[in-house]
Design a protein around this nucleic acid. Structure first.
Lengths: 141, 141
DNA sequence: GTAATTGCAAAAATTTTGCAGCATT
DNA sequence: AATGCTGCAAAATTTTTGCAATTAC
């Protein structure tokens, strides 16, 4: 990890950050790419990948690696949990009145130094619930 | 999802299941492939992928989709949590004296039908701890 | 001017698929 | 005999990388 690099504010970097913020809904690299293209038609996919990685490392966005899906990005960096629709893979923030608590694992019987945990909720979003039978069969949505 | 298929017990399927069980340590499809090759030199990678998927759907093994890694498989199907080494990506079962509890999210402010959740612990395994400096810099292991 | 960054093309890594032939039931 | 399954090759998907040209500082 290089720390001696002095980052530069390129137009691409700025637009990519803006795009993640305005898209809002946890876009993948490819979705960011398609959206950025409207403002910067000559942008390349690798530039998008490199900048999303850079912005995540800088703490300006958050990288979400959830259940076998392509990586997604979140413009909300403050701590919160996510819920994923089992049917359409839509991802939403989980902001609620009650706090999700995971008891820490420091006394568990293993030889790890525990640094943290990730929680991902699984559910059925309202769109998919409307389209699916009462038996909750998977549906396209 | 087809339900009218009558599965057959092929040598490949049997060996792939045995291999996941004897390998133990949450192997990826490729690791299973390499191990199965010793018994069945002409086996193909797609057969391994297809059977791992089949065995997971049948409930004989568990598919683990964790934090941006290639999919891994677990021969232990009873409920338990996992911990991943942040340095070497090793994955271990987390069997402990205390129970990990996640408060359910049914009262949260969202429009999902919550079906469940996944928890993944992050830590530093003993191998990597030994090799890393007291400041916990990432190390190859 | 220096060097961080880009666009492009090519490759890497993982997983899926079409299909003719094989093997289990 | 019927059809589920395999091996192979080819493709699809997502992400990374090498490099010459560009651009921010």
């Amino acid at each position: 990890v290089r720390t001696d690099v002095i980052p530069r504010n390129t137009r691409q970097r700025t637009v990519i950050l803006e795009t993640v913020r305005t898209l809002g809904n946890h876009p993948s690299a490819d979705e960011v790419f398609e959206a950025v293209r409207h403002k910067l038609p000559r942008v390349s996919l690798s530039t998008v990948y490199r900048n999303l990685e850079f912005l995540a490392n800088s703490g300006l966005i958050r990288k979400l690696e959830m259940g076998g899906l392509p990586v997604r990005f979140d413009s909300t960096v403050s701590p919160h949990f996510h819920i994923r629709c089992i049917s359409c893979n839509r991802i939403d923030d989980l902001r609620g009145r009650r706090v999700v608590v995971v008891e820490d694992a420091r006394d568990f019987d293993h030889d790890y130094e525990v640094l943290g945990y990730q929680v991902e909720f699984i559910g059925l979003c309202s769109n998919c619930r409307a389209e699916s039978s009462p038996h909750h069969e998977p549906s396209a949505c």
